[in-house]
Design a protein around this nucleic acid. Structure first.
Ligand code: SF4
Ligand code: SF4
Lengths: 152, 152
DNA sequence: CCTATTATAGACATAAGATATCCATAATAA
DNA sequence: TTATTATGGATATCTTATGTCTATAATAGG
């Protein structure tokens, strides 16, 4: 159970865009080479981010990408839910219904599976945390004294 | 990013064992058929659970499995960390170090990556929640009025 | 209008991991 | 001694992630 590499790519790309001067479009070439990964692959990820309204894209000469809204309004959750998809982390694969005879419980609107309730609850804890952290937040907390060239 | 089916298999199996009368060994045949899955596959999962001290196994006629400790002391975290492995959910795959010039921050013992800090923090939220929920906890919360045969 | 540049989208290829099967062996109860 | 049961390795299959390639559309600038 791991985040895909694509998630890391997306996060780093958005951080890069957040650092770019406002109004400038950053091309896929620059974004990909900075991370040392294939342009064609990253462009697919960017396409998803665009379709989800996280970045804007402009085709043509001197085109490229820019953030669609301030980095302070782009949460880790936003990014991850686009790249990883929105399926839940735990799915019930029960073929027959024999096995869960005892695992459901009364709730306001009826019965629910207690196994899934725990698993979904765990997922929610993680997602809530991710919603509280933004791209800009990471940049703001960065300390110059820790950049590689400054550390001997 | 999803939990593997194996995790579901393991959880259901342990719940089954927790319901079995104490001192009785439950065979792989019963455990597998209840969930409608291949014995050979489930036995590999059980083998991992045994190596991790979550269940005990007895070879030979009338052998099988039993919980190694009370269900109230087996957390969802225990199970998931065995089945899914213990690698962290986010790994940095940076080939060069050029890309993280600004993302580290001073901390008590030095510098750390702020991206990873957020991702690890999110994972921790989830794991802490899973540590607070046990196999027995699910059984205790189950309500008879919700079992299938009782619901019309 | 023409050309170079750049994003887009689909098809395709490859690698990795999850899921499943098979078989030979060891351990135990009866 | 025999039937039963778990164990572990090897292998096969299926799915998903990752990466590549190519054709197309859109735009800036000359
Ligand atoms: S108990 Fe819950 S997770 Fe298990 S089979 Fe029933 S519905 Fe699915
Ligand atoms: S910023 Fe963090 S996650 Fe990104 S490349 Fe540097 S160490 Fe890895």
């Amino acid at each position: 159970m791991q985040f895909s590499k694509s998630t890391g790519y997306a996060l780093h790309t958005l951080i890069h865009l957040a650092q770019a001067e406002r109004g400038r479009y950053v091309g896929i070439k620059e974004l990909a080479s900075k991370q040392g990964l294939p342009e064609s692959y990253l462009s697919k990820i960017m396409s998803k981010l665009r379709q989800d309204g996280i970045v804007r894209a402009v085709t043509g000469a001197s085109g490229g990408y820019e953030l669609a809204r301030p980095g302070s309004e782009i949460t880790f959750y936003d990014v991850i839910s686009v790249v990883e998809g929105r399926q839940q982390m735990y799915e019930c694969h029960a073929a027959n219904e024999h096995q869960h005879e005892l695992f459901a419980e009364a709730d306001a609107s009826g019965c629910e599976c207690l196994v899934k309730k725990v698993m979904d609850g765990a997922e929610r804890q993680m997602l809530d945390y991710l919603k509280q952290h933004t791209i800009q937040g990471v940049l703001d907390a960065a300390s110059f004294s820790c950049s590689p060239e400054h550390r001997a």
